[in-house]
Simulated assay, not measured.
Amino acid sequence: MHNPFLLLWLEAPLQAWGADSKFGRRETQSFPTKSGILGLLCSALGAGGEQCALLEEFSNLDQTVISFVRTTEIRGERVKQAREPVLRDFHMVGNGYDKQDPWASMLIPKTSERKPAVGGGAKLTYRNYLQDAAFAVVIEVPFERSEQVIQGLQSPTWAVYLGRKNCVPTDFIYRACFVEQAQALEHATVIAREKNRIEDFRVLHGALSDSEADEIFTLNDVPVQFGDDKRYRDRQVSLIYA
Rank of each mutant, 00 (worst) to 15 (best):
L162P: 03
N220Q: 12
L87N: 14
Y241M: 11
G36C: 05
Q151E: 15
K115H: 01
Y97C: 11
S209I: 03
V69T: 07
R202H: 10
A188R: 02
D234K: 05
L6P: 05
D210L: 08
I150Y: 11
A192G: 04
V203P: 02
A182T: 14
G18M: 09
F201E: 02
K195C: 07
Q148H: 10
K80R: 06
H91E: 15
A134I: 02
F172Q: 13
K123I: 08
E199F: 00
I108M: 15
Y97F: 15
L204K: 01
W158Y: 15
E50F: 01
N60L: 07
Y126S: 07
R193Y: 04
L153P: 07
P109H: 10
Q151T: 11
D228G: 10
V160L: 10
A213N: 01
Q100S: 13
E140D: 09
K99G: 07
E194N: 13
V168M: 11
I37M: 07
L38M: 14
E212Y: 03
L185R: 10
H2Q: 13
T71M: 06
A188I: 03
T111G: 09
L8F: 02
R78D: 09
E113V: 05
G119K: 05
F5G: 02
L8P: 00
D98E: 05
F31K: 04
D101P: 09
V149A: 15
G36H: 00
E147W: 11
E57D: 12
E27S: 12
G94F: 05
D89Y: 04
A47Q: 03
L185M: 15
A133H: 00
H187S: 09
A53D: 09
Q100P: 01
G36D: 00
M106W: 03
V86E: 12
A122L: 10
H91R: 12
D62N: 04
F143L: 07
S146R: 11
T111A: 08
Y241I: 08
R127M: 09
G121P: 09
P4D: 14
D214I: 01
W9Q: 04
